[in-house]
Simulated scan of single mutants.
Amino acid sequence: MVPTMVLVADDSQDTDRKEALQGLADAVAQRGEAPVVPAFGSGGDVRRAVDSVEGPMVVVPAFVAGGDFASSLVFSDLDLEGRFDACPTAPLGAVPSIVADLAGRLVESGWSSGDGVVLAADGSTGQEERQSVTDVARMLSRRLGSPVQVGYLNSWAPSVGDAVERLRRNGRDRVAVAAWRLVEGRDYERLHEMGATSVTAPLWPSEIVVDSLLAQHRAAKARLAA
């Protein structure tokens, strides 16, 4: 029996996020590899959606590590200890194909060698997610051949705005923001208010995101079968 993929995220405060997340769930389901159940909403909404799934399931964050503070809280509050047929996965992090896609988005947005770069994350309560953001910044820096600063919108410092200003003080007249987030929404729109020269689009839509989520499902499916 193929485990159900349960995609988890908080979309309770944002219509744009709700539409984007549903589009992502539809795209994963269309691959036909596994049944897909969207568990989007507040903590209670997500809990009810997870409880409604019968049989084995793989619970997959529909957000990148450190890229969605609200969703990270919802995911961390899920209690799956009583479900021996459930396997949670970690949020997507420093996946080489995703980082390569982000680098391409920077170039498409107008970045060129010599411009400053800020990797704009959201934050979370977990140190593992913070480390993942650091790893992404290092990988992105190697791919671009240029330093990459990290800035946060919530919970952690420095802020995105502070990181942009620091680069400007250090002589970078042009600063591009690489948005480390899966989907659009109000927090994404805030990035356009930070004084940067350009801001990349969210990582979704991209088939690379769908590929990566399905890869997580396959790995977890193997663990459930062991």
Rank of each mutant, 00 (worst) to 15 (best):
V2E: 04
V2S: 01
V2W: 02
T4D: 05
V6C: 03
V6G: 01
L7S: 09
A9K: 08
D10F: 11
Q13C: 15
D26M: 08
D26P: 06
A27F: 11
A34V: 13
V36D: 05
V36H: 03
V37A: 10
G41Y: 12
S42F: 12
S42H: 11
S42E: 11
G43M: 08
V46Y: 11
R48V: 13
V50A: 09
V50K: 09
D51I: 09
S52I: 12
V53Q: 08
G55F: 08
G55T: 09
V58D: 00
V58W: 02
V60D: 03
P61T: 10
V64Q: 04
A65N: 05
G66K: 01
D68L: 02
F69T: 02
L78R: 11
L80W: 02
E81K: 15
D85Y: 00
P91F: 12
L92H: 08
A94E: 08
L102E: 09
G104W: 09
G110R: 03
G110M: 08
S113I: 05
D115N: 10
V118N: 03
L119A: 03
L119I: 04
A120I: 05
A121N: 03
D122Q: 03
Q131Y: 08
Q131M: 14
S132G: 06
T134K: 00
D135W: 06
M139Q: 08
L144Y: 01
S146M: 07
V148W: 00
Q149P: 13
Q149M: 03
V150H: 03
Y152K: 00
P158V: 00
P158A: 00
P158W: 00
A163E: 07
V164N: 00
R169V: 09
N170R: 15
G171H: 09
R172C: 08
R174I: 14
A176T: 12
V177L: 05
V177Q: 01
V183P: 05
G185W: 00
R186I: 09
M194G: 01
A196C: 14
L203G: 00
S206K: 04
E207C: 08
V210C: 04
L213M: 12
L214V: 07
A215R: 13
H217N: 06
H217M: 14
R223Y: 02
R223N: 05
A226M: 10
